[in-house]
Write a protein that binds this DNA or RNA. Structure first.
Lengths: 193, 193, 193, 193
DNA sequence: GATGAATGAGTGTTCATTCAT
DNA sequence: TATGAATGAACACTCATTCAT
């Protein structure tokens, strides 16, 4: 592969990295593309050479980030089938990128339908994992016969709520860290007989 | 009362009504004040005669709506202390204004700090009611000794999640109607011994 | 004369008084007519009942003020024909209404041609007085045979300059008071042989 | 130099030139930025690409103009120390840009404090020059021992007065040209023993 | 005569996107 | 490929004046 292409790839990653910094910091919807370009140390126009429009950049950025997240999660999930352990790791992973997920929680309703669908699809894969593990627990008579999808919405909804209003729950630091144990406890309660 | 005053009042309510229509329909943050004026059939400048700025209109609109909601809720709550009944009524009330509460859930993180605080304060009053009723249940040995605030965050977080992503859960109609029973069931599960 | 007319007259004076307060305080060109009405404790529309437009109010206000000033000046001038004395009194009179004359100096170039002409005409009457007195002095061989109009422009120009930039010359208090003696001294110097 | 940069520079100068035309013609404070853009044959938004806001454009415009003026003046001043000659040249320079200085005289009281300070600082440098030359004259016993700062205020105040009310002194053409000799004569008179 | 609600053209400024260089 | 100057529609907000009450 020639130098051109690698350089182009590098610039592209550059932009995404800059966009992510901004995303984590203050969200991207209310940030001008020119500022993203500034942060990436490229010309404003260059941004539109790599992404046809602002939305595409957002889509790519989120996709990259969620991919990384999913990969990490999959590894962790394969090692165990204990719900408490998996949930514990899931929350820890989110905490590690809490800035990102906070913005995601806030901006999600404003993304174009297609992107929103994409993001929710990824989340549904994660739900699927939880679903299976819980299903096993039910079959093994460990958990009660509950409506799993709805229980999971309680879980994801609550996490989403904490994330989107984090500044109202903690002045600084991680919300999820603060409520980590409580979230797990209540969710386990939901599962129990 | 003076005709002048009634007409002014009428225009004001006109504006709020138009704003609410738009609020329910597509949110207000991303709507131009000129469009609100158009919808209210008044001149653009007239809007600023009744509200010093866009934020004030939003604050008033939300305040009016939440007041109505609170009043309704209070009446209902006084009649019973059964959690299931109260929650049932709470959800029904939200369903009746689901468009409004959907937008509120989405835009909340973007409101000025003061307005956000105001809204969350109103919500905290409602939490308080639930808290008391649940506390009673615990003291009467009906419910388990759970962490009430955290349980309530699960409840409100989940409702908020459904509301903010309603279009992703239902193509049309009310999300809360669809998941009404499930929400109640899971929440009661959380309370149980 | 009936009550109506006197009341109307009173309201009119009310408006002018309010306008003057504002004029002295922060100028009138950059003040909204609604604020003038507020200050006068009348309805916004009432202002346009007494004055067809903002300009007319300004014209009247300035005319009233300059009339009072002229009357005062005339009295003082008649008592003496000593230039130093007259100039001294002239400056003292301006000092007593320095806020008014400061604004006048700043806003003068922005008034409609007609008003500007009116104001400058009044000033020309004052110039005339000075002119005559100086002319007498020259004829009595007290002063040098100078170009009187030009000398007077030096005087009025300088006073105008101090007034229009007063905040740059003094932090607070009267500029003319600070430079009172110097102005007189230099002007007398111009007259001397 | 890059074609891009020269073109940008050209547009910038274009804007300043348009702004100056308007400045000379009718002042800039009461002119819309959109009209300046029209005059410069650029899009309205382009103006704000070159200047962050209207004030910055005004500051730059005035700074450029006063710099040119100062440079010219410095050269002239170095060649002689005769007050009459210097004053003569000073007036001639102003006459060459009389439209500009007229507007400056009118708008000065309305500029933001910082810009006003800047302009008055530049003027104070010019005062300084005059001061020194007059001081020399006094030491060489050519001039009387007068209060130099005050005498200079008479000079600058008078010039300012002519400029700000030029349309009232002459129907068309240069005021300063008309009163050029008289200004010099009177000022010399002030200096004389 | 007095009111004050309504008007609507006008303001300075922002920003995603285009395109000549 | 990368650049960055240019665009122009959009925005929230102001204010002298009108006119129905």
């Amino acid at each position: 592969m020639n130098k051109r292409k690698t350089q182009k790839q590098s610039t592209r990653e550059n932009i995404i990295a800059a966009a992510k910094t901004i995303y984590v910091d203050k969200g991207i919807l209310n940030t001008a593309t020119s500022q993203i370009a500034d942060t990436a140390n490229i010309a404003h126009g260059t941004l539109f050479l790599h992404f046809p429009n602002k939305d595409s950049l957002i889509i790519e950025l989120i996709d990259v980030e969620l991919s990384k997240f999913s990969d990490n999660l999959k590894q962790l999930i394969l090692e165990t089938s204990d719900v408490r352990t998996i949930l514990n790791r899931y929350l820890t992973l989110i905490q590690e990128e809490e800035g990102f997920f906070s913005t995601l929680a806030c901006e999600l309703p404003y993304y174009k339908r297609e992107l929103r669908r994409q993001i929710l699809f990824r989340q549904s894969l994660i739900r699927e994992h939880f679903h299976q593990v819980i299903q096993q627990g039910i079959e093994q008579n460990i958990y009660a016969k509950i409506n799993i999808p709805c229980a999971l919405t309680f879980l994801f909804g609550t996490i989403n709520y904490y994330l989107s209003l984090n500044k109202s729950f903690v002045q600084e630091g991680s919300v999820l860290n603060k409520f980590h144990e409580q979230i797990i406890d209540i969710f386990i309660k939901i599962l129990q007989k």
